[in-house]
Amino acid sequence: MRPVLADLSVSISELKKSPSALLAQANGSPIAVLNHNKPAAYLVPAETYEALIELIDDYELAKLVEERRADKDQAVAVSLDDL
């Protein structure tokens, strides 16, 4: 069985009844939305989602930097004055 990765969990039916109240109750923490007692989705505040997207973007950029560092021997030397 998959673990529930949130302190607060609700059924889809409960979510439909009062989403605003649930968000207030969660106080900025994620909410696990369960379907047949299994996580179907996680509801996170917009600020948390935006921060996660930024972290993913930073991670992907860091991977690209590391890949390019590995190909350093193929780099072409350029003087800033020539640009």
Rank of each mutant, 00 (worst) to 15 (best):
Leu43Ala: 14
Asn27Leu: 02
Pro30Gln: 05
Val76Tyr: 00
Ser79His: 07
Leu55Gly: 12
Leu80His: 10
Ala24Met: 06
Val65Gly: 05
Leu15Ser: 13
Asp71Glu: 04
Ile12Pro: 07
Pro39Trp: 13
Ser29Lys: 06
Ile56Tyr: 13
Pro45Trp: 04
Ser11Glu: 04
Glu50Val: 12
Asp81Pro: 02
Asn37Ser: 07
Pro19Tyr: 07
Ala75Asp: 08
Ile12Val: 15
Asp73Ser: 04
Pro39Ser: 08
Ile56Val: 15
Tyr59Ile: 11
Pro30Arg: 04
Leu8Trp: 02
Gln25Thr: 01
Ser29Met: 05
Leu23Met: 07
Asp71Tyr: 09
Glu54Pro: 10
Leu55Glu: 15
Asn27Lys: 03
Glu47Trp: 02
Asp57His: 09
Asp7Phe: 00
Leu52Asn: 11
Val76Pro: 00
Asp71Ala: 12
Ser79Tyr: 04
Pro45Thr: 05
Glu14Arg: 01
Leu80Val: 09
Asn35Val: 11
Pro45Glu: 10
Lys63Glu: 15
Val10Ala: 08
Glu50Trp: 15
Glu54Val: 14
Arg68Ile: 03
Leu43Arg: 05
Leu52Met: 12
Ser20Leu: 03
Asp7Met: 04
Ala40Glu: 11
Val76Phe: 02
Glu60Ser: 11
Lys16Ala: 14
Glu14Asn: 05
Glu50Ile: 13
Val76Glu: 00
Gly28Leu: 00
Glu47His: 09
Gly28His: 03
Ala77Cys: 01
Val78Gln: 09
Asp73Phe: 05
Ala41Gly: 14
Ser13Lys: 07
Asp73Leu: 06
Glu67Asn: 13
His36Arg: 05
Ala40Thr: 08
Ser13Asn: 12
Lys72Val: 12
Ser13Arg: 10
Leu80Gln: 05
Leu34Ala: 06
Pro39Met: 02
